[in-house]
């Protein structure tokens, strides 16, 4: 191994841990990736029961084989324009770790693309956009086949506090 390569490896040590398989999906034309180990299953769109007094990105709850799990809309969460749910709209069921313990929840995305292998050297640390965009829930940016995939830290996308934010009606 050349010295140059070693240097890269050292600087990318933290990112090396993030290499592995990712489930990629699209949201408003952008590509995102989710660690495959966090994904439980992918289900088609189903009836969602709205929960009052919650932020609008919390779509509500669904019945997943007898279990009641919350569902959030990632478009709304990221402040992207809402879109009618269609044929390709999916709910990705993920196991997120929150401060209140493990939390299974559904994430609504435009469409699921593929499962891809991301190697450590392809991952860039999250860029800084200043205060305009929160980057805390971005693990890194993966360069792949001419495009980029935004790797999400699903544990941070939603903290339990955020889900439970109480919005008084009318306020």
């Amino acid at each position: 191994m050349t010295q140059a390569a070693q240097r890269i490896n050292q600087s990318g040590f933290a990112l090396k841990e993030r290499e592995g398989k990712y489930l990629t999906f699209t949201l408003a034309g952008e590509d995102y990736g989710l660690e495959i180990l966090k994904v439980r299953e992918i289900i088609g769109m189903m009836d969602i029961t709205g929960i009052p007094q919650t932020p609008d990105f919390v779509k509500g709850v669904i019945n997943l084989r007898g279990r009641v799990i919350p569902v959030i809309d990632l478009r709304l969460k990221f402040g992207l324009p809402p879109m009618e749910y269609g044929e390709r709209t999916c709910i990705i069921v993920v196991d997120a770790a929150g401060p209140g313990g493990a939390l299974q929840m559904g994430v609504v995305v435009d469409a699921v693309s593929e499962v891809m292998n991301v190697s450590g050297e392809d991952i860039e640390p999250p860029p800084s956009f200043g205060a305009r965009i929160r980057t805390a829930y971005i693990l890194g940016i993966a360069k792949a086949r001419g495009g980029i995939k935004i790797l999400l830290d699903i544990d941070r996308v939603l903290t339990a506090e955020e889900l439970a934010v109480m919005e008084l009606p009318g306020s």
Binding site: T49, T54, V61, N63, V68, A164
Partner: peptide, 27 residues
């Protein structure tokens, strides 16, 4: 009665959820 999970625990007015006849969740 199904728990709505700890995320929705603080919501007042809701005691939990249940699966209704058509498979949807009712609050």
């Amino acid at each position: 009665i199904k728990s709505l999970g700890h995320v929705f625990q603080k919501l007042s007015g809701l005691a939990g959820g249940t699966i209704l006849g058509d498979g949807r969740v009712g609050l």
